[in-house]
């Protein structure tokens, strides 16, 4: 597979949220607005990138039997870095994303790429794979956040478009499920054509 395909597969064809259904908890939990979705997407991309790099470098040094625990420790270290850095420099975003920052550890997407890709490929491919998957995740979260923000509060990235309260349910919990359901269906329809 050439590197361009390696990068673009995560953006649309194998999008982690819409196709592979990985990392759904943060995808539903933090996307009350586009900016939260983007923040979460970028935080996950960072962890994904760093863990893919480290795993692909030391893959031969890890005994196969303790593979999974080793990956978990690597991922958890980077999540701690993100958690503390965000808390220091972006306290308001950190507060909004809350519990979902430490929960990047158990995001199946990060673990899945470490186990399924980085442990079998060289460092360059792993970096490109991580960037593609990470951006695909960030795009999906930003779209879902944007849709919910527009329908729920009539704004996008905090910029108010209409001056009224719209369907409040879309900013609340039910909107996350319904919004994602329709987005998956739309993604399927576009992919088919």
């Amino acid at each position: 597979m050439n590197q361009v395909q390696n990068f673009t597969k995560g953006l649309f064809k194998e999008n982690p949220v819409f196709v592979m259904m990985l990392g759904l908890c943060p995808a539903l939990g933090v996307t009350t607005s586009a900016i939260n979705g983007l923040g979460m997407g970028l935080a996950t991309t960072f962890v994904l990138l760093m863990s893919n790099i480290v795993v692909s470098i030391i893959k031969n040094a890890i005994p196969p039997k303790v593979r999974i625990p080793s990956f978990i420790v690597i991922i958890a270290s980077f999540v701690t870095i993100v958690d503390l850095t965000m808390n220091a420099y972006l306290p308001s975003l950190h507060k909004e994303l809350g519990l979902f920052i430490p929960l990047i550890v158990v995001n199946c997407l990060v673990m899945g790429r470490a186990e399924g890709f980085a442990s079998k490929n060289n460092t360059l491919s792993s970096i490109i794979d991580a960037l593609g998957m990470g951006f695909g995740f960030a795009i999906a979260l930003t779209i879902l956040g944007g849709v919910r923000e527009i329908l729920g509060s009539g704004a996008i990235f905090g910029v108010s478009l209409v001056d009224a309260d719209l369907m409040l349910a879309f900013v609340l919990a039910p909107g996350a499920f319904i919004g994602l359901g329709y987005l998956i269906a739309i993604h399927r329809a576009i992919k088919k054509n």
Partner: peptide, 8 residues
Amino acid sequence: PAAFIVAG
């Protein structure tokens, strides 16, 4: 998709 709408 239908399952998500039901969950919603």
